[in-house]
Design a protein around this nucleic acid. Sequence first.
DNA 1: AACTCGTGACTGAATGTTCACTCATTATGA
DNA 2: TCATAATGAGTGAACATTCAGTCACGAGTT
Lengths: 185, 185
Amino acid sequence: MTTTIDRPAAIRTALRDLVAERGFHGASMGAVAKHAGVAAGTAYVHYDSKEELVYATYLEVKQQLSVAVLPQVDLDAAPKERFVQLWTAIYRHYREEPARAGFLAQLEASPFAEEASQRLQETGDPLIEQATRPDLVELLADLPMEVIAALTLGVAVRLVAAGISLSGDQLERVAEACWRAVTVG
Amino acid sequence: MTTTIDRPAAIRTALRDLVAERGFHGASMGAVAKHAGVAAGTAYVHYDSKEELVYATYLEVKQQLSVAVLPQVDLDAAPKERFVQLWTAIYRHYREEPARAGFLAQLEASPFAEEASQRLQETGDPLIEQATRPDLVELLADLPMEVIAALTLGVAVRLVAAGISLSGDQLERVAEACWRAVTVG
DNA sequence: AACTCGTGACTGAATGTTCACTCATTATGA
DNA sequence: TCATAATGAGTGAACATTCAGTCACGAGTT
């Protein structure tokens, strides 16, 4: 069995880790290549530019989140329970590899954010479908979707990115706090 | 009357605006100087390095927030009312100059964040005193302070940084959502 | 008033470094 | 054998920072 290394994936992971640790200005293409164990030119075989690599990394991180998190939700559970399961699973997914949260937090605050979320919409995000199921939506407060996202997903990303650790107990209380925020009555 | 220009302030503002608009990697010292209308070397008369300038700018933005916002709060009002006044005033302060929120959102997600908030603690932040008044604290859910901040201040910064505009009506609903999140019962 | 220092702010060209990116060449695997 | 992947030295541009020199101006002197 010949193990072929997935170099594009290694390069994306290296970018993600370096951005999380040192910020965008500390993640030069040279450092990324070195961290990924490839030559300086290799990234350009697979990505046209640093910017394209950034977007590809963003899409991968978002997709990994959906893939890891959706199977953990009981689709038949009541809306609130589903929400808490989902939020907790998201938090845990970030927690287990905090570089994902560190990368996302920085990307989403940066000028790349707009283009990145546009590309995400083009590819489609299964998490959004889950979040827009009618029985959940009817319980939500009348607020723009971006506000709902900031009060739920956004909080999870930032708590992990900031390195704040929560016990299982606190975790549940934060999930409930987010639920209280976005629902009325 | 001779109007002497406060060049250090102009340089801080230029950094803040450029970081908000183009990100940290797009805010070179050359660009900052040009934007501030001074020569490339002038920033170094007042700040030892780019990093020092970043921290000074952070402290200024945070202080401007406190100064602008605290007088708008009725110190004798009930806790919830005070909270909503405070949150709304914060949001409006960012809204009126979105570069403040853009700069803060990026700084707080970056590797500068830790050192920056340490320096803020050393100088002291009047907003924190307001947020820790006993009659308010006793209503808050049992959550770490960082979580409370993420669910309140953090939401305001990010909504403005992301360019989401809210009507006065929606504004009040978001403030109430934050209040629901951080309080129990 | 005029003159002359002294001091600190300001300038912008220069410096050495690091960056994103290229490309001729070599390795790999089907 | 051939297409594609990978390499790493090389390139020009851009970067943070420096510094020798200029400027503005208040204090001290006449």
